[in-house]
Write a protein that binds this DNA or RNA. Structure first.
Lengths: 199, 199
DNA sequence: AACGTTTTGGATCGCACGGTCCATTGTTGG
DNA sequence: CCAACAATGGACCGTGCGATCCAAAACGTT
């Protein structure tokens, strides 16, 4: 689908579809996402869906993931790209907190969903790997930056990975026992690992 | 299904079905688990499956989860119930390592699967919550024990939760980027958090 | 106004898959 | 040896759902 060829009306419809699909996924997961339901929710017909997403459900799913990850990334800006001070790290963490706790995003197992699709969609899988790698490297750069180093070393990478794992673990455990506490705890202690800023 | 009424032959068939289902889930996830596939793999007919699992797919799934969690628990024994020494903690961690890294269990997102079913099966969900709570409490007791205390306090609980989150995060991230490295790293540093044994 | 393109409606197909049912074969205990 | 019950085979059904297709309406452009 060549998005640039779309009329503004078309773009709006497409966005409506993506939003509705994302909402349904957030609420009920991937398995129960049905094209019919999306159509009903958006008052669009079958042909529209396949018009905007020639790859069908798979294409729609890709759009949903892009949508969600874009929001996750946006929530961390602008701190994410200047993690050289403690204050900046705190801003980053607060951004994440807002993202996860407003509109109940902590129940949205984005990563768990990702773990599902990697088995069935090779392209999407590659894109997701790239995204997660970028995230980790950005954080690692931040860990290096607060120590006045420009290039992250292996230890920084490891620490960045730890932080991400901590968040993801908190998300998924919270999903299981239906409490935001694990995620909250994870975010509470996530800055404990990073070394204090050198004077 | 009253298991005690089963003939030894019947028990064997039932076990075969559960094993095959567990294997398929491990390999391809929940979504694609089909009763036909299980039947083919085990050379059993439709009626057998519904004979042993009157609740159908849902019942089969419950059995699969029980099966998997039993193995996870067994892998941590006997250390899990005497975590009063550093050596014991190491034995525990090594047990987990063996469990996850032999027969490629690190790709089996047990918890991610659990996160899926909690939405659809209330009973199974409750059971899973109980399991995870028990696990956390057992670890918390261990954290208290190595400090010569009998009762875990909130801090011990928190630490136990952290360890579990770390493992789960490592599992799911590894599933996404298709590398056992995150889990390996998580297990490598998991004992760093627990306080040194008092002299 | 006229033509090409985009957007929309909706009927229809095909099929995978969970579940039901009935009949047949095996097994066990009195 | 013979009931009673368990174990097995396999046809059959309903349906949810992704996908295809044929048009028709709306829109923009000259």
């Amino acid at each position: 689908m060549d998005v640039s060829r779309l009329t503004s009306k078309g773009r709006a419809t497409r966005a409506r579809i993506v939003n509705a699909a994302a909402e349904q996924v957030r609420a009920h997961g991937l398995e129960t996402l049905s094209l019919d339901a999306v159509g009903t929710a958006t008052s669009t017909s079958r042909s529209q869906l396949f018009h905007y997403f020639p790859q069908g459900k798979r294409g729609l799913l890709r759009a949903v993931f892009q949508h969600e990850i874009a929001e996750l990334t946006a929530a961390q800006e602008p701190a994410l790209h200047d993690l050289s001070s403690r204050r900046s790290w705190e801003a980053w963490r607060d951004g994440l907190s807002v993202y996860y706790f407003t509109q109940g995003r902590w129940t949205c197992p984005l990563t768990a969903l990702a773990a599902q699709v990697v088995a069935t969609d090779e392209d999407l899988s590659a894109w997701l790997i790239a995204q997660s790698t970028t995230w980790r490297q950005t954080l690692a750069t931040g860990v290096a930056a607060i120590q006045h180093r420009r290039q992250p070393n292996d230890q920084d990478e490891d620490l960045a990975a730890t932080m991400i794992c901590q968040i993801q673990g908190g998300l998924i455990m919270g999903r299981i026992d239906r409490s935001p506490e694990s995620l909250r705890a994870a975010l509470r202690r996530i800055l404990d690992w990073i070394p204090a800023q050198a004077a």
